[in-house]
Each structure stands twice: as structure tokens, then as C-alpha cells.
Design a protein around this nucleic acid. Sequence first.
DNA 1: TATGAATGAGTATTCATTCAT
DNA 2: GATGAATGAATACTCATTCAT
Lengths: 225, 225, 225, 225
Amino acid sequence: MAQSDTVTRILDTAEVLFAERGFAETSLRNITSKARVNLAAVNYHFGSKKALIQAVFSRYLDPFTLRFHTALDELEAQHDGQVIPLETLLETMATTVLAVPAERNSLKVFMRLLGLAYSQAQGHLRRHIQQEYGDVFTRFTELVRQATPELPDAERFWRLHFMLGTVIFTLSGLDALRDIAEKDYHEQVSVRDLIRRLRPVVVAAMNAPLPPTLEEGHHANAKVS
Amino acid sequence: MAQSDTVTRILDTAEVLFAERGFAETSLRNITSKARVNLAAVNYHFGSKKALIQAVFSRYLDPFTLRFHTALDELEAQHDGQVIPLETLLETMATTVLAVPAERNSLKVFMRLLGLAYSQAQGHLRRHIQQEYGDVFTRFTELVRQATPELPDAERFWRLHFMLGTVIFTLSGLDALRDIAEKDYHEQVSVRDLIRRLRPVVVAAMNAPLPPTLEEGHHANAKVS
Amino acid sequence: MAQSDTVTRILDTAEVLFAERGFAETSLRNITSKARVNLAAVNYHFGSKKALIQAVFSRYLDPFTLRFHTALDELEAQHDGQVIPLETLLETMATTVLAVPAERNSLKVFMRLLGLAYSQAQGHLRRHIQQEYGDVFTRFTELVRQATPELPDAERFWRLHFMLGTVIFTLSGLDALRDIAEKDYHEQVSVRDLIRRLRPVVVAAMNAPLPPTLEEGHHANAKVS
Amino acid sequence: MAQSDTVTRILDTAEVLFAERGFAETSLRNITSKARVNLAAVNYHFGSKKALIQAVFSRYLDPFTLRFHTALDELEAQHDGQVIPLETLLETMATTVLAVPAERNSLKVFMRLLGLAYSQAQGHLRRHIQQEYGDVFTRFTELVRQATPELPDAERFWRLHFMLGTVIFTLSGLDALRDIAEKDYHEQVSVRDLIRRLRPVVVAAMNAPLPPTLEEGHHANAKVS
DNA sequence: TATGAATGAGTATTCATTCAT
DNA sequence: GATGAATGAATACTCATTCAT
């Protein structure tokens, strides 16, 4: 158990420090000294810093993938071949996202990590995530496609990413925003509260009217790369 | 020209490398060697790496602030005390954002930098931006407030940040997304094209129905920190 | 032995180089390259250059403090509550000072280091010495007080420091002075020889007549800051 | 006059900073920025940092040498071939030392600088001082020799340096000692006050009985290098 | 005469990783 | 299975000095 304990303490400490400072700004010394673990333990147990970063993500994403597949299985069984409404799909995803960290650490940390995964120069991480967890997202987007037949494929693709940006940006920068919100509007904002606010916005965004096509749109008058 | 040249080359190189790899992952050696400039030149001209980072932002944000203030002045003059419609405000902002980098480097870099500013552990940078450029955003949000009187203040605050997330996330991760989009949908996506797609989404999101209040909403059944 | 060896070699080399050139003029590169040790070893074993400087002193002062306390214990036991004569106290201190470096390196190095500790801009070092080794000096000065009841406290304070200056200045600049002395007076001067010369001078200085009080002294006629 | 002004400001600033922190710890940047002078000015006007250090000393020592020679001329004229008493010689030296800085900056700075000259690794400085100002000290020690005919030459040499140590150590570390003295003995100590205390001590020290010769002294029983 | 720009060599320190035990 | 010691490479930054103007 001593080994397992060491591994767990490294992961627990690493995820918090990564979320707080980013990957490059968190040294193995930071992690091992805060975790009260030998400096060489990370390389011993994980092999490298990169592998540790991936392990931190796996601890969240593995159970998420499992649960999400199960939830989608149930949804499909319930609807028995019929189209699952968009709102139900989004609802299900939100519920699953919320459920996983509830078992473990905090949702905030998870979201910070997701934000970092996108913004920081960790190509290996993006590749790792894409490779290990791409399937469930492909399945999900296919269901979304069926739920929004009127949307051109490209439009749907972009809108899904618009919304991904909304969610990740907001939840990963939650602390800073929450501070401002509380100071200016004297409001206590919980993650659950934020999800409540997100729902109608996301739905409205997905159902927004289509943009004018390029032909009938305004003429570009400046070159922008 | 000698001084100006060195300073400019440092800034040009730094902004590209920062955008590609992030701040911590870009060393002064990286910058100076790629810019073909002496290693000590950064500290000579800027004082520190932090100051260089801030200078990179200032080169975008200074002209942006200037132009945006001017544009808002014009808008207010045109509407002569009457409320400026939300779409006009968003349109104006988009135009200004597009105009500035067009004079300089690329919009993509600017957006990547903005994304990094939010996600990376650069407290000094967030403070610097807030302090130097907070005014024009305050002015803008006040105009948005007048354009959306039916929205509660807190709701407007969050929706603006939802949309900020959408824009920054999408535009800052543009390259990766564009690759996928082109592969899957055989579509060439320009920034201008993306802005066209963003417009109806943002408007719809801002005008989405209000969420149910907490009292009448679903009961929370899981604790999420 | 590996660890002990590296640490010892760093300390041995550092104390010699510090004594020769001073702290600021001795770089960690100087030390590690001369000690045939990895450049990072100093930071690994000591944490910082400051800590190394303090460690160099501790290696002398720790055994000195121990021995001096023991010697004073013995003196007090011998005199059984009666006042210990000043000359005995000075004799004991001299003997202890001589004994410690005899076990280790050279007295000359120790004295050079002490001189540096006072003259160089190493506030941290003065604080460290004061804090770690202040007790034994307090004990010593208290015994000196009892041995010289006729001296006003302030006068005794200053005279002790006058003598400290004599000893440290002479012994720390020993090499240069010795060169001159040998050239001019064809005399081989050992440290032991110098101590012999110091004894009557120090005793006479401590027992010098009191200066005229300010009131009856010469009137100051020039302002000196 | 602009040039002269620049030179003076550099010298004024340099002597203060050198006295506060030492030579190595004071950079040309420190000096020039505090003096509000161009960074290249030191090298322009003095040629190098070493030359600046020497110039700082010359500004004190040149007038000192002049005055001291004059004072000794007068003394010799007054005593007309007869031996000048030791106390008179010491008195004259003290007066001259006090007089020079009174015209310029502070005595404390001068003494700090003298202390540094001895303790810091500035071989060039010691050589410079010896070479430029050795004569007047040779003249002075010859007069001291005549005033103390009973002292063996070597003994006189050492005692003079003992006293040099007393004076330089005390006056150069004055600030720290003054702080302690004021805290412990509630005494305000001026330099003039300290000189008053030094006088009887130095005289007593110079007149101390001769030490036992080596033959009749205690036998050394430990080798000390 | 004076200075802003530039530079090559240097500083202490930190890094992830390796290795012998 | 685990760890203290060690290391080579890199980090940001500072230095005194030079040089073109």
C-alpha cells in the first residue's frame, strides 16, 4: 500500500498545482516536496513529467468516458432508435461532467486542467487525449447531428466548439470571475448555479439562425490572415 | 534605426514564439537567437521577461484602445443620447478587433496571446491589462447595459464572459480547429468567415431567455464544490 | 562517503577561496571547479550561496562555541564563585581560538573569514552569527564585567571592541603584514608569536586610565558626522 | 563645467555606495543611475571601475597627505631637532584625519573605505595606496621610532598595526556598534566621542610592557600554521 | 564631449532526469 | 521498491566594457 499511497499523493498534489500554476510553472520539486514524497518518485512511478501530466488527466477522463458511454447507452435504449432531443443530450453531458469530479476532487480543478490542455503548449497531451478519449466524443457529436438535422455539418462543428469555449473558458477561469461577480453584484456563484445560467445560452446559441452565406454577405474589404 | 530595429525584432519574434508555445515555454534564448539579437538585449531594452510580455501586449492593445474609444465616440455622436443597439455595439467591437492586427501581424497571434493571458499563470499580466486597459471595457459594458435593459446585471456579466470565452477559445485555438474543419468538411475557413458565423450565435446567446431562478429550478442533488 | 566527500570538498575549497578573495569575488563556479564537483552541487547540498557561507562559518564556530563553554565551565568551577581575573579570561579565549582551527584548517583562514564577516556587505552573515553564537559571547562579556568592576559599562563595551579590532585586523591581514615584517625586520612571525605580542598590549589597553569625561574634556570645535 | 559636475557626482555617489556595500557589490549601474549620469560616463571619465575606486581614495588621501606633511613640518620646526613626544604625534595624526573629511563628506565614509581597502580583494588598491601615499607614513613611523626608543623595531611595527586595526575596525564598523551601544547603554556616540575614548587606550597599548622573549616564554605545544 | 545601444562573459539558481545502493 | 546524491543543460538576469555617432 505504501507504493499506492505514494502514487496517489503525487497525483493529488500534481493536479492541484497544475491547475493553480500550469504545467511548465510547476516543477517536480514543487510536487514532490508538497506531497512529502521523494524527488525521484515521480520518475520512478510515472517515468517522466509528461507521463505524470497524462496520468492526472486519465484519472478524470477514464471514469468520465465510462460513465458517458453508459449514459448514452441508456439514452439510446430509452429513445429506441428515435432522435434524442438536443437538450437531453446536453443535459446528459452536463450531468456526467458534474458527476465525475464529485467523486474525486473538485470540478473547478478538472475544468482548469481542461482549459490548460487546450491553451498550453502540450502537444503530447492533446494527442494523448484525442487518441484515448476521441471515441466517446465522436459518438456524442453524431447524436447531436441527428438532433440538429437542419444545421449544415460545418456549422454544427463550429457551434459545438463555440460552446466548448464558453464552458471551458468560464469554468476554468471561474475563481477570477467569481471574485469580480461577488464584488460587483454581491452574488455567491456556485458551479451548479453557473450551469443553470449556461443552459439557456447554449441552447439558444445552437439554435441561432444560420449566418448569411458568403455570397450574400458583406463584402470583405480588408485582408486578414 | 538601429535601436528601433532591435526592439522591433525582439517584439516580432517574441509574439510569435509566445503565441506558439506559451510564455514559460519560451525562453529569452529562444527569442534572442531567433531574432538574431544579443541575449542581453531583452533585458537591456525591456528590463525583464515580464516587461517584454507586457510590451508585446501593449503593442496590440494600445492602438486597439485608441481606436475603440474613437469608434465609441462616433457611435455615441451618431445616436445622440439614444440607446445604441446591441448588434451595433458588437459589430463595432468586431470591426475594431479586426482592424488593429490587420495593420500589424496577424489576428490569430493576437487571439492566441489573449487566450494565454487568461489561461497562463501570469498574474502580473492580468493585472497589467486590467490596469492599463480596463477603462475602455468598462465603457463598453456600460453601453451594453443600456442596450439590454431587460437583463439583470449579473446575468449580463456572465453572458458577456460566456461570449468572451467563445471568441477567445475559438480564435486562439484556430489553427487546430481549422485543420479538423478542413479535413472533415473540406472548407477553407478564414477569420472573417468565422466572425460571420459567430455573429448570430453571439446575438442569440445574449438574447436567450432568462434561466429559471434558483427557487423554481431543479433541486441540486449532488454536492459539487 | 560519497555525500560527505562532496560536501567536505565544497566546504574546504570555499573557505580557502572566500578567505583569499572575499565572498562576492568568489563565484560558485570558482568553488565547484576547483573542488572538482558539479556546479549544481552547492545548491543541492546547501541551498544557496548564502547558506554555504554560513556553513563555512559554522564549521569553525560550532566547535569553538562548544569548547569555549566547556572552558568557561571549568574556569568557573575552579574559581568557585570568585571573580576570574581578566588575564585568565583572555588567556582562555586565546587558547580556545587557537585550539579549534588547529584541528582543522589554518587559523589564518579563520581569522580572514572573521574579518570578512565584519567588513563585507553580508548582513545575513552578521545576523546568522549573532543569532547562533551570541550566547557564548554574552557569557564571556559578563565574566569580563565582573573582572573589571571599575570600568563603566559603556567604556568596557568599547574597549572590548577596540581589542576585537586589533586582533581581527592583525590576524586577518596577517599575510601582508608578515611579508613587510620579514622584509624589514628579518623576523619570522608565527601566529603563536603574534599572540605573545598581543597579550601585554591587550591587557594594558583594557586597564588604561579612563578618558576625561566630556564636560571636562576639550571642547569640540568642528562638526564631524 | 558640465564635465566637472559629472565627475563630482560620480565620485560623490561612488564613495557612499562603496562604503555602504563594498566594491564588488556596487555596480557601475548602481552608481551611474543614482548619480543620474550616463552609464558610460564612468568608463569615459575614469577609464575603468578600478580607476574609479582609486580616484575615490585619492580625493581623500591627496589632501590628507598634503596636510599631514605640513603638520609634521610644523611639529619638527617647533621641536627643533628634539624628539617629539608620542602623544603629540598621535594627536597630530588624529587631528589631520579628522580635518580632511570635515571639509568633504563624512569621516565615517572615509573610515569604511579604509577598512574595505584592507579587507577586500583589491590588490590593485593596496598597491596604489602604498605607492602613492607610502612616503608620509614612512616619515610618520620614523618620528614614532624616535619617540619610543625603548621599543624594539619589530615590536613597534606590530603595535602600530595593532592600533591601526583598533581604529579602522571601530570606526569603519561604527554604525553597527553605535546601534548596539545606544540600545544597551543609552549613549549617543559621536566620532569625536570615540576618539576621546581611543586616546588613552592607544597610548597605554603603545607603552605596554614588552612581552617575554620567546626563549623564556611558554613552550608551544601545538603546531599552528 | 557625451551618450544610447549593444555585447560577450559572467552570475546564482532551477530543471528533469539518472544512478548506485 | 524506494531514495539520497549527483549531474548536464538550461533558466533569467547582471556585469563592465566598447563603440558608433
